[in-house]
Design a protein around this nucleic acid. Sequence first.
DNA 1: TCCCCCAGTTAGATGCATCAAACATGGCGG
DNA 2: CCGCCATGTTTGATGCATCTAACTGGGGGA
Lengths: 226, 226
Amino acid sequence: MDLTARVEDYLEAILEIEMTGEIATVTKIAANLGVTKATVTAALKRLKIEGLLEHERYGDVALTGDGRGTALTVYRRHEFLSDFFVRILGFSRERAQRVSCVMEHEIDEQTERRLAAFTDALAHAERGNEEWFRQLQETLDFPKALPVPLCMMPDGSNGAVARLTAQYELRRRLNSAGFVPDAMVSGIKKQEGAPGGLFTFTMNEIHMRVGITEASAIWLYQPEAV
Amino acid sequence: MDLTARVEDYLEAILEIEMTGEIATVTKIAANLGVTKATVTAALKRLKIEGLLEHERYGDVALTGDGRGTALTVYRRHEFLSDFFVRILGFSRERAQRVSCVMEHEIDEQTERRLAAFTDALAHAERGNEEWFRQLQETLDFPKALPVPLCMMPDGSNGAVARLTAQYELRRRLNSAGFVPDAMVSGIKKQEGAPGGLFTFTMNEIHMRVGITEASAIWLYQPEAV
DNA sequence: TCCCCCAGTTAGATGCATCAAACATGGCGG
DNA sequence: CCGCCATGTTTGATGCATCTAACTGGGGGA
């Protein structure tokens, strides 16, 4: 089972056609995926070799058991991801579609289960916290600016801590050093002296110096341009 | 600005090398991306034509302003997505890496901002709800089974409602019809009669009949095999 | 009945991304 | 000052996915 992403897309498209009760044809598949009929014919040849569908020259297309199983898995992941992106993260339908289309081929069963557990937990939390969820949705309508890693801030600049892309020890260390959301960092300067450089700045009136590891995990919002 | 995903990967890899304070070379890029040096040379040619980097035969590689800007955007999305998947959704590092690598090329600025707003909101909610978050993490360690859409359940089978992949009117309609998590559905049967078929079953001792639209939005857990 | 048109196929080509293998450069050690 | 070898490049090939253009098959309307 080592199919290309594209092959999985064809399976999924065929399953979706079959689910409407119709019989899959080259033309429908082509329309579904936005490619020419010639391309579909070529793809069907590959799929047939893999034993995922039945197809004779000028004949109909039908998934085999194997093909149907694989198609369902891909379809399930697609639907689920798309639902997650739209309902939980507030993506546009179109974007959710695009993202799901590529992600559906990259997640495994374990990952899908985790995602399911997460949404279920959120749905559960929603009951009794409607107010918080309403606020969350509002937040999603006025999204934040985009941060830059400390190591890429211009010399002498200031910023507010946006987030830390770090885990475990490093995260704890940075947190207890005062790198929490909205903390102000000022007078950032890069010096030579270590591989990747040393970054000096002031936070909470304390002069600090960190290496590239820390400086690339600390993301700052640049001050508003006035 | 209509780069292939792969081209963006090369930019990102070069930026990561530059961030360590080193100068990007063909060998380092190749190692970073797991391809041969020949492949890198070919890619650099394309990138140079696009004006994203400077590179003379046998010379060093250096991003241009444009290239650096694009690279930072891709890098930021990658780091952020990866962090989101690991910290919020509990993915393995490896998986998060894989997923971020494909997703980073598909999200736009608006989407990235929403994601940022969501994590910030969650982080905010975490203070004062440590217990709930601890439970969430626990849930993620024992993930659920995987559901199947009602329209694909075997004839005569039973199941428990897992989730609805629907929004707005349809979602509300299904909810008020009793399709909420854990509701039991039994004696599912497919009949001809409409495009896509009609699906009959019993829920809460009431006999129901739905079309393909509803039946593909209702996902059921199949009963445990004993 | 027959032939027209639509559905499907084939042929031939392109572009991207990749590889292995052969070749070119040039800086450093001796 | 010269040659070695790591670094980088070229060449020629493969595989996937795609296209256009030309071709083929076959069922339904005139």
